[in-house]
Design a binder for these strands. Structure first.
Length: 164
DNA sequence: GCCAACGTTGGC
DNA sequence: GCCAACGTTGGC
């Protein structure tokens, strides 16, 4: 809808499928996106994500990187509990309960693509050339995606599924 | 496993 | 506040 009062934002979230892939999210239905330790990615969660935003779930550091499914943002930002766990890998010594350093949102499973849209296929298409994940050296684990790009990715993924 | 690109840290 | 060193990311 072109004139929606509150158009959803689109995001791309990377995850390594060996540690947490789309099928994990499918099983969990919903998860807190803990462990982000990059300030820019945190700022996106803390300041810019809204309930209802659409997440393109991307598998990285694997044999066939690409967009494997969809999720929804289902909470406002809140402090990442893992920063307070002194024994945990994501402990943040600078954080206090009064002044947390890291934030998370909850995301909920929406869909696992029958056929993922692979990074190689995204690269092939000139209309995606300006996407952040395609820029050389882009390592940001959470990036905003233009709605035109996001909708096209979803459309192509769905088409790929039907073509099989 | 390699390596380029990047963000973060810490000494000064 | 600079910047070198370091650790990490992620595609190949």
């Amino acid at each position: 809808m072109k004139f929606a009062a509150h158009p959803a934002n689109y995001w791309l979230i990377k995850s390594e499928p060996v540690s947490y892939g789309i099928e994990h999210l499918k099983g969990d239905k919903k998860t807190a996106w803990t462990g982000v330790r990059n300030f820019q990615a945190r700022n996106y969660m803390q300041n810019d994500m809204r309930v209802g935003d659409v997440v393109l779930f991307y598998h990285s550091s694997c044999k066939e990187p690409g967009v494997y499914g969809l999720a929804n943002v289902v909470s406002e930002a809140y402090p990442d509990p893992t920063q307070f766990d002194a024994q945990g890998h994501y402990f943040e010594p600078r954080a206090t309960k009064e002044k947390p350093v890291w934030y998370v949102v909850d995301i909920a499973f929406v869909e696992e693509f029958k056929t993922p849209l692979l990074l190689t296929e995204i690269r092939e298409r000139p209309q995606f050339a300006k996407m952040m994940i395609l820029q050389p050296g882009s390592r940001l684990s959470i990036t905003p995606v233009d709605s035109t790009h996001a909708e096209e990715i979803i459309r192509l993924a769905h088409e790929g599924g039907m073509a099989q």
